[in-house]
Design a protein around this nucleic acid. Sequence first.
DNA 1: TTTAAAATGATAGTATTACTATCATAAATA
DNA 2: TATTTATGATAGTAATACTATCATTTTAAA
Lengths: 224, 224
Amino acid sequence: MSIAIKISLNEGLYLKEPQDSKLGRKIMQYSIEMIDEFGFEAFTFKKLAQKINSTEASIYRYFENKHLLLLFLVNWYWEWVNYLIGINTMNIANPKEKLKIVVHSIVSASKEDPGVAYVNENKLHNIVISEGNKAYHTKDVDQENSKGFFKSYKALATAVSKVISEVNPNFEYPYTLATNLFEMSNNHIYFAQHLPRLTDVAAHKNKADELETMLNYFVDKLLS
Amino acid sequence: MSIAIKISLNEGLYLKEPQDSKLGRKIMQYSIEMIDEFGFEAFTFKKLAQKINSTEASIYRYFENKHLLLLFLVNWYWEWVNYLIGINTMNIANPKEKLKIVVHSIVSASKEDPGVAYVNENKLHNIVISEGNKAYHTKDVDQENSKGFFKSYKALATAVSKVISEVNPNFEYPYTLATNLFEMSNNHIYFAQHLPRLTDVAAHKNKADELETMLNYFVDKLLS
DNA sequence: TTTAAAATGATAGTATTACTATCATAAATA
DNA sequence: TATTTATGATAGTAATACTATCATTTTAAA
């Protein structure tokens, strides 16, 4: 028996659901690899087409452009994290414990294997870390937002903010803290790797553990 | 009498110092205007050349490409904030008070007028908010970092982290908190404007004041 | 003031990017 | 088997991101 996970995303993000066809899944798999390897700026549909022995035209049948592909991938990751949080905190009554699990899920999502063959969660996580905020730092944010292209991120922020409010109902900034957890998580992994003077997370050791400890410290202090 | 402020930046950021010539200053002034208006992606040297009645070739004599121009502008802003912090906290003995002034300087830097005619600090601040992290989210970070292209940001982070450590010498994450203050400041202004579900800062009211209150709350809680 | 040097303008050209369009063929489905 | 549907092959276009060359203007030195 195998359980197939398919994450449903806003239909405006793609022209044709890539998860439903061989070519579509190849596009996902190899775009993740190539963006991770060469960076989003250097990534083009032409290069991707060559890599997977297809054509530019075929890829354009799935995604309007590479920005929407990035948005699709990033949304996929956010959905995945949200899904994980849901599973991992299921049946946990204690809010504090719940929030610890949330933090752990954010930091370690890429280590859990969902069994989606065409998504390398580790590489996708790297993309979210390095290129993720390009997904919403664009002149078209408002228009894209009105189409629901950031729904997954908002849903995730809302879910986490609820746990935060459970821990401390008087805390005035649950949404801020929620998004800040994601942003910090991404930023400080990136800083530790590339700009170590901007963080206290050491580059050498087990970054994820250190990051998790740090986030938990911030959370505890802020909600006490 | 007039005091001319000239912010010195890493020489690798430009081919020819733009602050020293009429054309150079025009490039700074109008690139700020155009990036703010149309966004970094849509901004090109060709369009800028047309705007200022110059040529692409001439602009390329000042900056290798638009990414380095962005880096230059963002560094300029970081230097400017650092300079302001230095001035504003001068002769303030109490660390807590000092840190409050630091926070205020970060949030309100763009409101202070340095008398640099060719830099609209307000628009530049918008650029830092919307496009700032593209400055260091690139495949060439490591190489650019080794050339000192992020020195200004690091210097700023170091300066703020020192004040943080003055307030609480036992706090283990002074650099993290310092950079987090900048990132939060930028993010939550942006969120309030474009993705309000991601923040507790209200879009309508005086965002800067609200943001400042929020940052002070975070700082106080974390350092208590 | 002349002269040389430096800065800018004018123009052209190239490889790449980001697409769109059309038609043929292969694969899946009814 | 017929017929949608998906993909491939190919071509073409406008814009981008440059580089190169030479003429002209501006500035600074002699």
